[in-house]
Design a protein around this nucleic acid. Structure first.
Lengths: 207, 207, 207, 207
DNA sequence: CATGAATGAGGCTTCATTCAT
DNA sequence: GATGAATGAAGCCTCATTCAT
């Protein structure tokens, strides 16, 4: 018996998969769990995705794209000082993830998939590109600050960007591991020191 | 006595398990792979570990302990300026892991196990403790620099420590994801800015 | 709807299991044997029974119910003298089992399961109830004979019933152990003496 | 390191095996359990018995022999009336087993082994012989009673013997299944009726 | 198209048996 | 002879995938 034809059936499935993979991890997740979460039959998933593996990769691409769009939006805001925008980006990234920290487990799954999955190279490449993009964005911000004379210190903007991004990633990880750990003040302390080190006093723009 | 019991049999198995889990990931690893890697029969593993799950946790504990000891050794070196010691620690941590970057995939597995494993809480707790310890070590270093007047800036040492540790973690992650990415210069740029921000010019002690 | 669900699939499996368990015993029986006997795939069994253990218990319940129904039918026949009905019941029980003596091995498995199985208490309880029921039926027959004055002797009807039932059980056991042993004449001799002892001359109604 | 050479090592092992098999059943019993119960090493069992199967059969033979000897002793007592001796034998058999009812589970295992075991035919044959012997003993008793004129009724002594033995077996089974069931009064009621039927009033010799 | 009953490859685990000490 | 660490055959069970309805 055909239910109402969901025109976004594929997206529904991906969303359900995200929920299930987040909660139980890829290996422990069952196709039937995804089907239940999506409110459809088990077999139907296979009309849209050829395998569990493929569905997993689809959730990965979905989230990567979503995140990428968010980052672009953040970078598009071109108001204020370089230091201010840098700090604002740190805040935004952290807050965005803190709001759905429960999905962070999925990020860990994706990282792990770079070892585990038969598709590992596709995961790795996608991550490389995503990090490269993000580094470029953050790097441009830093470079702009140096070019404009706002930042006095000379430093490799790309390298610093990698480290900053890293600190955000890993503060979220610590928050995931320990619900009592709040990554925001840590990031603020860090960004303050960094801005100071770049040659300005930066007041983090409190969210 | 029967066939002489190899007193290091347990360690041999754990070592083999580390190699196999690193390469294929926990889920894809087969007990028989571990046995082959250890040069023993499949059943022998079960004389020492009650289940695959338990073996996995044993590799986790083994590596956590090892890493913990390394960190203590690093922290024990009490020569030079706070900035120098901080930078040296960054170098040491990165270099230690770069030397066995192939095992970093296992760290990703462990992170992921905090979602995936039935033992997830034990993994989380162990990570919390490890991070707490490491934060304390790094925090003490920063605090010492501030107390001695070497660092002029006032900052929450614990919060900054969390961010620094995070950047090391995540730079290694980026290196794992992209063999062309070298985390050392990124860390040096970062640490230089941080030290600058703390009120000193720090020349990283090159390894 | 998917492949039409055979509404009798469960019964088919139980029947196949009875055949296999009878022939090879529970421990030596393989799930794949049951599947083959049922003409289905190994995995299908697990759609209906969660474990081998559970399937075994299901065969037990199935046979106990079947036997219970047979006993009720026998007891429902209310024609003739008490002695006649008692002897008829002995005949009926023996003949019913002799017709499918090959399944008697399964009864032995069930008895043994009261020691062996993790479910041992459920087996024991079920047997206790079955014996209690059967004793009540036979006991009522004897009591009726005494009440009507047909049986002159005074005797504890329940106790005698237990012994009579026991003799039927165990004559079948001897028949199972020795194909040359015919339990019917033994039972007839026995029942004749018992009826005589109860105060009547009873001619067993030959089946 | 050799323990004190137990000259009856073999018997020790069999005794231990009886205990273990009684408690857990053959399939669930582990060779290491037997070894522990015997206070020896696992490998030592194999110095005396070529396999678990062989050990099981050895326990069977041991118990069959023991029981056979007991039966002979009972039969050897040639005092009193036929009815008295018959009733005494019933009592003796029941009491002997009630005293070690915990071992009755092993009898069930043996019965079941006539289906289960690769040695099933050897078990069956042994049981056939044992039952034949026992029937002969009891039959002789009945025949003597008829020959001496004590029993007036004509009945096939062998057939009746089979039924009587069966009732003892199965009353013990009921006692095994239900700790609240006392087989002694049941047997007494039964034997009283049987003796009556044979033409005498028999007072069971209370134990 | 949607479904879910059926399937069987494949893994973890057990444990009787072997054999070096 | 006695031992118990080592072994690997073998079985239960899971679950992604298929396909008849």
């Amino acid at each position: 018996m055909a239910r109402r034809a969901d025109p976004d059936r594929k997206k529904t499935i991906v969303t359900a998969a995200i929920a299930v993979f987040s909660r139980k991890g890829y290996a422990a997740a069952r196709m039937v769990d995804v089907a239940l979460a999506a409110g459809i039959g088990k077999g139907t998933i296979y009309q849209y995705f050829p395998s569990k593996e493929a569905l997993f990769f689809a959730t990965f691409e979905y989230l990567m794209t979503q995140t990428g769009v968010q980052m672009e939006n953040l970078a598009a805001e071109r108001t204020g000082s370089a230091a201010g925008r840098l700090s604002a980006m740190a805040e935004a990234v952290l807050i965005a993830w803190m709001d759905r920290l429960d999905a962070y487990g999925l990020v860990l799954e994706f990282w792990s998939a770079t070892t585990t999955s038969p598709q590992r190279m596709r995961f790795k490449t996608a991550f490389q590109n995503a990090y490269a993009d993000f580094r470029k964005t953050v790097s441009a911000l830093i470079q702009a600050g140096m070019d404009s004379g706002e930042f006095h210190s000379r430093v490799d903007a790309g390298m610093l960007a990698a480290a900053l991004i890293g600190s955000w990633d890993a503060l979220l990880l610590q928050a995931w591991l320990d619900p009592d750990f709040d990554p925001l003040p840590a990031s603020r302390s860090h960004m303050a020191v960094v801005c100071q080190g770049l040659g300005v006093s930066c007041k983090p723009s409190v969210a």
